[in-house]
Simulated scan of single mutants.
Amino acid sequence: MSGERFTLDPNFKALLYDLRVSPARVLRRASLPGDLLSRGPVALLPEEYFRFWDALDAEGGDPNLPVRIGQAISVEMFNPPIFAALCSPDLETAAQRIATYKPLIGPMHLGVEQNSKGLRISYHWPAGMRPPQLLAMSELVFWAALARIGTRHNVRPTRISVPQLPEAPDVVGDFLGARVRKEAAHAITFATVDATRPFVTENEQMWRFFAPELRRRLSDLEGAASITDRVRAALHETLPAGDPSMTAVARRLAVSSRTLQRQLHLEGATFQVILARTREDLARHYLGHGAMSPAEIAYLLGYDDTNSFYRAFRTWTGTTPQALRSAGTG
Rank of each mutant, 00 (worst) to 15 (best):
P163H: 12
Q114N: 11
W207M: 14
S293E: 14
R159M: 05
W207V: 04
G3K: 12
S2Q: 15
T317R: 10
F190H: 01
V112I: 13
Q261G: 12
Y286C: 08
I105H: 09
L221V: 01
E48V: 12
F209K: 14
D57F: 10
P46T: 14
R28E: 15
I69S: 04
Q71G: 03
P66H: 05
R39C: 06
M129F: 11
E204Y: 07
G173I: 05
R29C: 11
R28H: 12
Q71L: 09
H236R: 13
G34F: 05
Q261T: 11
K102P: 01
R51C: 10
L324F: 11
G118Q: 06
E167D: 12
P81Y: 02
A241L: 15
R51P: 15
M77I: 07
W316I: 13
L45N: 00
H153I: 06
S293R: 14
W53S: 06
D281G: 07
T93C: 05
D62H: 04
T100R: 02
A248G: 06
A58Q: 08
R5G: 04
V255C: 13
W143T: 06
R120T: 13
G128W: 11
T158R: 15
D229T: 14
D54P: 02
Y299N: 01
V26N: 03
T238W: 02
I188T: 04
L176C: 04
A72G: 07
A283S: 15
P321D: 07
L91N: 03
L218G: 07
N154A: 13
F83R: 00
T278R: 02
A127D: 15
V231I: 13
L110K: 00
